[in-house]
Design a protein around this nucleic acid. Structure first.
Lengths: 222, 222
DNA sequence: GTCAACTAAATTGTATACAATCTTTTCGGG
DNA sequence: CCCGAAAAGATTGTATACAATTTAGTTGAC
C-alpha cells in the first residue's frame, strides 16, 4: 500500500468506474465524493490525480474530473498495443523462460482448461487473467511485465462481457494451448502470430458494440 | 496545460531530475521545495504524485518522496521494452503509413543527416528524438504513439551522453536510413530487426557505465 | 419572447492548520 | 564507552479555510 486513505479511495473509485457504477463522462464532484467517503477533499483529489495518470479519468483545468470515455478507435488501439506487448513477452519467453516460470505457466494453463470444461465463464475469466500474467512473468523483463499488467487491468472491463460470446471460451482455450506449445518449442514467429490474433480478436469483437454505444450516446446528447 | 501551478512545478522538478540536479536517492522534502518555489505544500504534493506515476520518483508511505534510482537491470529492461514498442510502430508503419506521415519522416531523416554531417552531437541528439517521434506517429496508433513517447522521455537522460561515443553518431544515422528505406519498402521483418538493434545497442552501451556507478554508490554507502 | 450581460452560487486551486507517524537526540543503565 | 529507551523535533497525511474562476440564474433591453 502506497498510502493510507488516498490509495483506498483510488481503488474504490477505480472499482466503481470499471464496474460501470460511475458512467463515462460523469462529473466527479470533489465535495460529493468527500462527503460520500467521509473524508476531506484532499485525499479525494490525490485519488483523482492517480486515476488520471492511469487513464481512467480526465481532469480539465478549473472544470474538475470526469470519467474518461474511451472511443471505439482508442479501444482498438489499446487492444492492438496490448497484442504487441504480449507478443514481445512471448518472444522473450521463447528465448529465456526459466523452469520455474514454465511450471507456473503450465499450471495456469491447466486451470484454464478446467474452467473451460466447467463452462463457468466467470471462472474462466479469472483464470485467463492469471494465465496471461504468467506469460508476462515468463518474459524475464520486469519492466515489460509491469507495463503489460497495467494495460491488462485497463482493458479488463472490456474483456469481461466478451467471453460470453458463443463458443469464444473454447476457442480461447485452444489458442492458449497453441501459445504454450509454441513457447516451449521456441517457435518465436509462430507464437507471435498466434498471440496477436488471440488478443486483437477481443478488440475487434468489441468495436461494433462500442460504436453502437457511442451512437446511442450521441443520440441522447442531441 | 492540465493545471496551473502544479503542472509547472512538475515540469520544473522533472527537468531537475532528468538533468541530474536532483540526484538519485535524494529525499525530496515537501517544505523545502515549497519554500524554494514559493508555494504551499499542496501543489508540491500534487507534482510529486505525478512524478511518481511517471516513474521518476518513489513515494514511500510516511517517509516522503525520493528521486528514483534505476538499477542497471531496470535500465536494460526499459531499453528492451522501448525496442519492442518501436518495432511495433515500424511494423504498423509498414502497413499503413500515410503520405503525410511519410513526408514528415523524410524531413526528419534529412535533418538528422545534416546534424550528423555537422558533427554537432547536441543537435543530432535533438533531431534524433524528433525522428523517432515521427516513427511513432507513422504507426497510425495514437495510444501506442503516446506510450512510446512516454518511455522515450523517460529514457532521455540515459541516451544523451551516449551519442558522444566514438563513431556512434554516423553509425546511428546509417541505421536511420536503413529503417526508413525498409518502412517505405514495406519490409516488416527487416525493419523490425534493424530497429531492435538500433535501440538495444544504446541500453547495452550504458549497462557497464551504470553498473560502475552502482558499485561506486555501494562503496560510498559503506 | 429571446438574447445578452451582470450578479450570485458553486466548484476548483492553493494556503494554512492540525494530527499522526517517523527520526533524531538525549538521558540512563550496563 | 557503548547501547537502548524515551522524549522532543521534524515530516508526512488529512482537514479546514480562503481565493480565483467557472457556471448558472436573473434581470433588463430590444
Amino acid at each position: 500500500m502506497t498510502r493510507k486513505t488516498a490509495t483506498v479511495l483510488r481503488d474504490a473509485l477505480e472499482h466503481e468506474i470499471v464496474e460501470g457504477r460511475l458512467r463515462p463522462g460523469e462529473h466527479l464532484d470533489e465535495m460529493s465524493l468527500a462527503a460520500r467517503f467521509d473524508v476531506s477533499r484532499t485525499p479525494i483529489r490525490e485519488a483523482l490525480l492517480g486515476l488520471e495518470s492511469s487513464g481512467l479519468v480526465e481532469i480539465r483545468p478549473r472544470r474538475g474530473a470526469f470519467v474518461r470515455r474511451v472511443s471505439a478507435r482508442e479501444l482498438v488501439e489499446m487492444f492492438e498495443t496490448m497484442a504487441e506487448l504480449e507478443a514481445a513477452c512471448c518472444r522473450f519467453a521463447c528465448q529465456r523462460m526459466t523452469d520455474a516460470q514454465e511450471d507456473v505457466l503450465m499450471r495456469r494453463l491447466q486451470r484454464c482448461e478446467e474452467a473451460a470444461a466447467s463452462g463457468d465463464v466467470e471462472r474462466y475469466y479469472a483464470e485467463n487473467e492469471l494465465f496471461h500474467t504468467a506469460i508476462y512473468a515468463a518474459s524475464g523483463n520486469s519492466f515489460l511485465e509491469a507495463q503489460s499488467r497495467m494495460l491488462q487491468s485497463r482493458l479488463k472491463p472490456f474483456r469481461r462481457h466478451q467471453l460470453h460470446a458463443r463458443g469464444r471460451m473454447t476457442q480461447s482455450q485452444t489458442e492458449h494451448r497453441d501459445i504454450v506449445a509454441s513457447i516451449r518449442a521456441g517457435e518465436q514467429q509462430r507464437v507471435v502470430d498466434v498471440i496477436r490474433a488471440h488478443i486483437v480478436v477481443q478488440g475487434e469483437k468489441f468495436t461494433s458494440l462500442i460504436a453502437s454505444l457511442e451512437a446511442e450516446e450521441r443520440a441522447k446528447a442531441s
